[in-house]
Design a protein around this nucleic acid. Structure first.
Lengths: 228, 228
DNA sequence: GCTTAAATGTGACAATAGTCACTTTGTGTA
DNA sequence: TACACAAAGTGACTATTGTCACATTTAAGC
């Protein structure tokens, strides 16, 4: 893949949308192009974190395995997303794994390369700060939702988080299995199944051939903020 | 309070530990000194976020009220901590409130002043990035703990988070009431009470005149990572 | 198309933690 | 010191959700 193509991909997405040519060139020059198969671990929990990834194509899952074996899915990443910046910045180990959920390409940037880029292009730091701020906000909202709401509203929230705004027929960004949905929403697979079936009865969602669709966005939003 | 004194306070603490004189002077010059009584809301959920706070003395609680009335305590802040930077950076509204839990002083910095400081002192951004990274890490750990563990291990974790490392007699950073502990650990006051009583029986903690002390740090750590 | 494995659907049961309704104990203040 | 109010302790009950044990369907590879 050529630098130009990479530049196009990078420029399309949030963090790099307003990068000038020099910045993009620098990122590509110092970055390292990597390909992953579905299921590959792009970042591994427990490892020291000496690099950062920029997702170019494909999709990935960020998840942690607790000491008692529970898998917790923190987020799903789309192209353009920066991954693994936490450990890189604070010098700690990886607290989560990132797994490719389909064939995926990414740009790896080492700590030293990253520091050089930041040094050279001073306003990249501010943009990164903005990204991190949003990430903290998402995490806090997740804590709030997990704590304050019962399973119904909670699943509604996670479904809405997966929903694509202008998409036809309430398609989700990713078609997750019910077990995966469970790991994401923090409930058992069986409970996910029962909840989806109930909503399916009421015409709020449809569940066909393993794919969940949101049929009634408004009602689901109401459920997401229900008092219970 | 004079600039010199402020400079001393600022310089003592993490984010500003390695600021040079010019940086400190700039922060103080552009900042605005504010005092709060116990119970005052320093930052209010829902407000637009146009400023940032640096806690100089006292202690504060960051918490959110969910739409169903549940109060969720996200963190307690000590002097030196930066507060309210999320909304300032990403331009959104405040998702949480910050309340003084004792007489408290802080330095307020407006968005424009903050941007000036970042422009002028370029490596402050990197330090802030580090702080934010750690904050995301904490939030993720909180999600993991809330999700994967039952109330026992969870309370253990939150108590350990409040524990002071070298402190005599397992004192905590803050003496929280059992209801507050409940809002922090995500369990009901009654359940907190029962759990503490049980641990008290076993000599793991002591509960005297409303103050919790950790007597057996090792055992509590084990509980925090228990398989259940 | 057949065989296997993975994903889904469902009932019965258990367990964890919340809620309610009090009592009891502190604490601060007039 | 007495009063008032907040915090803590406790029993009984309930609710929500997880777990286990299967049946059933779907998908994928040979």
């Amino acid at each position: 893949m050529k630098a130009e193509e990479l530049a196009n991909i990078l420029a399309e997405h949030s963090l790099f949308a307003d990068c000038d040519e020099a910045e993009l060139a620098d990122i590509i020059l110092r970055g390292h192009f990597v390909q992953y198969e579905k299921g590959d671990e792009m970042i591994m929990q427990g490892d020291p974190g000496n690099s950062l990834l920029i997702l170019l194509s494909g999709n990935a899952r960020t998840s942690m395995i607790a000491s008692n074996g529970h898998e917790i899915v923190l987020d799903y990443a789309e192209p353009g997303q920066v991954l693994g910046e936490i450990a890189l910045l604070d010098g700690g180990d990886r607290t989560a794994s990132v797994t490719a959920i389909e064939p995926t390409t990414a740009l790896t940037i080492t700590r030293s390369a990253f520091e050089e880029i930041l040094q050279k292009h001073k306003n990249m730091a501010l943009r990164l700060l903005k990204v991190m701020a949003t990430r903290i906000r998402t995490a806090n909202t997740m804590i709030e939702g997990d704590r304050a709401y019962t399973s119904g509203p909670r699943l509604a929230r996670y479904l809405l988080r997966l929903s694509v705004v202008g998409a036809e027929e309430g398609r989700l960004k990713l078609d997750l299995s019910q077990s995966e949905l469970g790991n994401f929403a923090g409930m058992s697979r069986e409970h996910i199944n029962r909840q989806l079936s109930a909503w399916s009865e009421d015409g709020i969602v449809s569940v066909e051939s393993g794919k969940v669709r949101i049929l009634n966005h408004a009602t689901l939003s109401n459920i997401a903020n229900a008092d219970s």
